[in-house]
Amino acid sequence: MSPPLLVWLAGGALLLGAGFLTTVLPRRRSRERERRVAWSAARAAIDSASVSRDATAERVPEAERLLTRAELIAAERGGPAAARAAADYARRADQLWQAHG
């Protein structure tokens, strides 16, 4: 193999590798960030709902069921979709408790 041929092959491989990395790394990072944002929001919503539950005198079974489901989802961890579902349940539970409070 002559040096110029090696240049073509190595250059082509490097170009492919660089294109792959510049596409994959930022995408992976943004996905990770999205996941963390979703879980941050979910945890905040669950905390709020717990506070509301503790402050409400009467029991609201519907809200307790929603919060339990949110906490179950949170306990299993998961992707952004799971986090958004947990946040949604927690927020609805929070609203129910605040309405009764």
Binding site: V37, S40, A41, A44, A55
Partner: peptide
């Protein structure tokens, strides 16, 4: 309860800020 919830949100915002999460999220919190 409203104050406790507010403080909880503030703690979450602080944690998000420390972790370097995006600005819109911090602002929402």
């Amino acid at each position: 309860p409203a104050l406790t919830r507010g403080i909880g949100k503030l703690q979450a915002a602080r944690a998000a800020l420390d972790e370097g999460l995006p600005e819109p999220h911090v602002r929402t919190l």
